[in-house]
Amino acid sequence: MAFSRRPLVGYPAIVGSLVTTGGLGFALWAHHMFAAGMSHGQSVFFMVASMAIALPTGIQIFCWIATLWGTRPALRTPLLFVVGFFLTFVLGGLTGVVLASVPVDLQLHDTFFVVAHLHYVLIGGAVFPLLGALWYWLPKMSGRLMPEPAGRASVALLVAGFHLTFFPMHQLGLEGMPRRVFTYGRDTGWAGLNLVATGGAFVILAGLLVYVAGLAWGLRRGRLAGPDPWGADTLEWATASPPPSYNHAPLPAVTSRHPLWAPAATTVTGIRSEVREILVTTAGHAAPSHRQVLDGPAVAPLLLSAAVTATLVGVVFTPWAIVWGSPLCFAALTLWFWP
């Protein structure tokens, strides 16, 4: 969003997709076990659920592409990692739909096709976004920007190295190369593609080294980031980098999903600073509800922890620990509760 200068397209659709994905996640785990043997009805159920996950995932990807579509996005390192994530994760998703089909899965089970698929999904879907997110938020934590040339080089090396390593594994799997075997015979004909994959692994290592070196350099010598180096829309970018212990002074009043892009920033007043007072809002609409005065430092929670620990360790040796432990816990709770 920060890089396309545009709000996320299809926000409700993305939220709905995430919820749907979470729900379907409970109904597809047995797709790892098709080869273990199950009834026809069960395998059909898990096959359909596994394939159905492509729909909410596809909706999310299209929304993200639509967010970038027609803009002139700032192609900085975090966004480049996101582009690498699109390229890789979509391929992993496509092979996922392929593997969800029971007959195909029975053929490809325990081959390198599965190894290729799971790395496309996990590295494409989790590691690339994670590396991008670290590059994006480290300036907020450290106050310094990470060096762009190192970032771009690491994206290029990592994405190229990744595909060099894992793309050939699709073919190896189709040729029948099994996984979880420590060595293979000479005459299998799999040596060439495996050599390519090994070369790719070294490229990935080079990319990671460039990334880590970039972070090390950026944390020490990087340009000062300022509050909002990316032109982002969310609240963490309204305060200094690194943020002071109180985060915001005064407390911002948020009226939009993009508070930093809103026409006028507004604040909350009337929160006392001489006591530990915080503003509590309603759970659904985040409307101001009341002011909660927080307790100061107290010894009762520590005593309770000690009492609970003593009781639980005690019951390992004797059931009577419940009899003497419970009053101890109750006493600590009373001390905590009593004003």
């Binding site: 200094a240 009226t255 920033a265 604040t267 009337g270 929160i271 503003l279 101001p288």
Partner: peptide, 16 residues
């Protein structure tokens, strides 16, 4: 780093 700019008050919590 810059201090956050002063902004008009939208919510007065003193009466909550």
């Amino acid at each position: 780093t810059a201090e956050p700019r002063a902004a008009p008050a939208a919510i007065d919590a003193a009466r909550l």
